[in-house]
Design a protein around this nucleic acid. Structure first.
Lengths: 146, 146
DNA sequence: TTCCTTGCAAACGATTTGCATTGGA
DNA sequence: TCCAATGCAAATCGTTTGCAAGGAA
């Protein structure tokens, strides 16, 4: 379930972008808001059911990404997972299970995150590359696969 | 061009795995060794030319990954890039250009890398997740796209 | 000889798109 | 009303696989 707050932020962002917040798109957002990590079209479809056909699901994901509401994530061959953009969900990192492929969000305590920021800034500063964002992925076995 | 050292390590690894180090596979390895970041089958094919058909290229990539010589990398929708495994190329991180999608390796100075390791250990320690590896990706605009 | 490897073409799975229909501001 | 959004089916794209031919031990 999306929180009323997040939903209002999305409504406003989509209105600003002249994009309608339709039933199908609300269903997609709701499913992603309930997930604890990025989800692919197929994974979402499994949760959502027949009420949103795959082609519409893909179109919704594309539109919502374009509008900056969703962010794509790549960690498995041949498929894209999506999650709420960080301005909605907060900055976080990912645990990637090398066994089942599932990706789980982790929030990092402020102190650690700040140290991480410093390191990233140091690294990016040393090369001709303008840093916009950083992503730390930790690979291992999730609780289910251990 | 692969260095003689790396090439000898690969020969040995493949011999141990009962996998032949054929001409086609040498070409793939050589192209990846010359690249400064992970490359997709299509990107490799562009460099290699017609001498290795795509289906063979894909098979080589699969076999070499299976043997632990190559590691896959995911950062663009719908395609897999490969790079030499870290035991051959050394531990490193990636700069991902959000404009053209190209991925570039960066080595991180020992001091920074050690601080990074500590942070990752702290994070992984706080959740039920066994850490095997970590990957830091910095997203931004590469020199060409800036 | 005996497998492993290769090439070509067909098959696949994830995603995209054309087109006619529906729906929301 | 009127254009954006949807649904279906067909098309694309990256990748995989069946099968017959080639190559190395």
């Amino acid at each position: 379930m999306t929180t009323p707050t997040i939903d209002r932020q999305i409504e406003r962002r989509l209105a600003d972008a002249d994009v309608r917040y339709t039933r199908g798109r609300r269903v997609v957002i709701s499913a992603l808001a309930e997930a604890d990590g990025p989800r692919s079209a197929a994974e979402l479809s499994r949760v959502i059911g027949e009420s949103v056909p795959l082609s519409s699901l893909y179109r919704s994901l594309a539109v919502l990404e374009e509008a900056g509401v969703l962010a794509p994530h790549f960690s498995s061959p041949g498929l894209t997972r999506y999650e709420l953009a960080e301005w909605l969900s907060g900055h976080h990192h990912h645990l990637v299970c090398i066994c089942c492929g599932i990706v789980q969000d982790i929030e990092v305590a402020d102190g650690l995150e700040q140290r991480l920021q410093e390191i990233v800034a140091d690294i990016a500063g040393g090369v001709s590359f303008s840093e916009l964002n950083h992503a730390l992925e930790i690979e291992g076995h999730c609780a289910g696969c251990a």
